[in-house]
Simulated assay, not measured.
Amino acid sequence: MRLSAPPALADTGLFKFILPRFTLKHRVKVDLVEGDSTARLGRNAGSAVFSDAGGNWRLDLQAEAHAGSVKFADWLMSDVGQRTVVSFAPEGIALFAAPIAAEVIEDDTVAEGNTLEGQALALTHCGRCHVVSEANRMNAIGSTPSFAVLRTFPDWEGRFQAFFALKPHPAFTQIEDVTDPFPEDRPSPVVPVEMTLEDLESILAFVAAMAPADLGQPLQLK
């Protein structure tokens, strides 16, 4: 996988410390690059994975993210990954800590899936049509609402939970152990979207953590 990060973060030596440990454990080679990458560490986008004096560092999986990137994200957020990051202490001084908890937004939604895995799944399965994140902003269908816009709907959770039953999704979507197979005389008109209920839970977790789009104030008509 290819990982990009600001030079200031790379210059701390953190990656020379943690990446060999991840590779040894998961047999996934990580190339630290400055250009195009499958995962990006920064301040503004993605899920918070660790923090320093400047606040949270966030990992953002890109549209072309593959299994190795998801493994790295899972490892970085696991107890082992967190302990590895926190234990990096050049000259005996720890530079990083666990992510700073974000302000709790009042919401009754409880999603149990993995948000980073959900982001990767959403980009793979839903990014053909919807803008899922900045990673595929220029590759979606303009007439299809983005995830951030859908997140503003009061019934967004129900829409995502039952998306496979809402048109046009039934024509090309298969949820393992939930949907019926396509009739032999009416196969999917496009490459099918195939996922499990666990995949859907992860996508829901990703969407639940997403900030709704700022659509401005409603029009005031006189």
Rank of each mutant, 00 (worst) to 15 (best):
G158I: 00
A102G: 15
A89P: 06
P99D: 07
S78H: 13
D177H: 05
C129Y: 01
P170W: 04
N114C: 12
R128S: 08
K167F: 10
E103R: 10
G92P: 03
Q161H: 09
G127Y: 01
I100K: 11
F164P: 00
K71I: 00
L150V: 14
F163T: 06
A162T: 13
T152W: 00
F164A: 08
M138Q: 13
A94H: 12
T152H: 05
F147L: 14
V178C: 01
E176W: 00
A111N: 09
P154N: 08
D107P: 03
A89F: 07
T84G: 14
Q82I: 06
S78D: 11
E112M: 12
V86M: 12
F172I: 01
L166Y: 01
W75Y: 15
T115A: 15
W75D: 14
Q82R: 13
G92V: 07
L121Y: 09
F147N: 04
F147E: 06
W75Q: 11
N139I: 04
E103G: 14
I105E: 05
R151C: 07
A148K: 05
L95R: 10
T115G: 12
F164W: 12
F153N: 11
L150D: 09
E117A: 13
V86C: 10
C126H: 04
R151V: 01
A140T: 05
A165L: 07
V104R: 07
S78T: 08
A135V: 01
R151G: 09
A171P: 01
E103H: 09
K71Y: 14
P99A: 08
A171M: 05
G142C: 04
A162V: 01
A165T: 14
F163M: 14
E157T: 07
F164L: 02
A135E: 03
P99M: 03
A101L: 13
T84S: 15
S143H: 08
